[in-house]
């Protein structure tokens, strides 16, 4: 379970009100896309979910508990840039989370523990389509590959919530479509709650189970200072999508497969 409840959250920087009275309940296994014009506080909102910033007023609950005031392992994140560590290889990047949690002082694994972790990491690297690039450094990868790596790195922690801050914004359209497919598959497989900030409305409607729009209700220059943005649209996608649950209406190729009682390599399927 990983339900997020945001209640009457305000965020102010000095006199500037950024967000006002935001209330939102994000169901477990939902995929929420946050859209809105630049500077309307989407990223600020995500940072509060991450624990990087605190709301000025209001509460944010994860599974009924107030979220910790600093980032932690229950909430994974992928940023648009700087999400991976330039000094570690692909394998090292994915391994890092394991090493943090299993080696308190050395933060490095040896022997059998390392072999097990490497095996798990390799599997995940394969999942995101980076097999063969394990020993490369991020500077040797393309932008799309770096974001795949960032996803794998976050997913090895099995976070309850995955936060994405315009993760695919800098990618060109072909690569973006590919990574969307991957993202959908990972969401179904891991069944985590995802909150994504995006500028791309199309991306929002392709991936999300729910699209939430942030906007300033009053946006005249003299009002800008004292009125923040809030949720103006909250659209649930029809037919409903939920992680791990195949859609009944338009089963798309990226969704989980309906179990038909036989496996895909069943000879009966190919008519032999």
């Amino acid at each position: 379970m990983s339900e997020l409840i945001i209640e009457n959250v305000w965020k102010e920087y000095g006199d500037q009100i950024v967000l006002e009275n935001v209330s939102l309940t994000i169901a477990s296994r939902a995929f929420v896309a946050l859209v809105g014009p630049s500077g309307c506080g989407k990223t600020t909102f995500l940072r509060m979910l991450l624990g990087q910033e605190r709301p000025t007023r209001g509460t944010i609950l994860l599974d009924g508990q107030p979220i910790p005031t600093e980032p932690g392992r229950d909430r994974g994140v992928v940023f648009q840039r700087y999400s991976v560590f330039p000094h570690l290889t692909v394998l090292g990047n994915v391994l890092l989370g394991k090493e943090f949690s299993n080696a308190r002082y050395k933060a490095k694994l040896f022997g059998a523990a390392r072999r097990n972790a490497v095996e798990e990491a390799r599997k995940l690297i394969g999942e995101v389509g980076l097999s063969g690039a394990e020993q490369k450094y991020p500077a040797q990868l393309s932008g799309g590959m770096q974001q795949r790596l960032a996803l794998a790195q976050a997913l090895i922690m099995k976070p309850k919530v995955l936060l994405l801050d315009e993760p695919f914004g800098a990618l060109d359209p072909g690569i973006r479509a590919e990574i969307h497919t991957l993202m959908k598959r990972l969401w179904h497989e891991t069944q985590m709650t995802v909150v994504m900030v995006t500028h791309d409305i199309r991306e929002a409607f392709t991936l999300a189970s729910r699209v939430v729009a942030f906007e300033r209700r009053r946006d005249r220059p003299e009002e800008k200072q004292r009125y923040g943005a809030t949720i103006t649209k909250d659209i649930s996608i029809w037919p409903p999508r939920l992680a791990g649950v195949p859609s009944k209406f338009s089963p798309d190729r990226d969704g989980p497969i309906d179990s038909l009682g036989y496996s895909r390599d069943d000879p009966a399927l190919s008519g032999e």
Binding site: P71, R73, V77, G97, F100, R104, A107, Q153, A154, M157
Partner: peptide, 18 residues
């Protein structure tokens, strides 16, 4: 990068080291 390391469960010491 630091935030990312924190979400991977790193402590101050671990983040300093790695």
């Amino acid at each position: 990068q630091i935030i990312k390391a924190e979400t991977l469960g790193g402590s101050s010491w671990q983040i300093a080291l790695r």
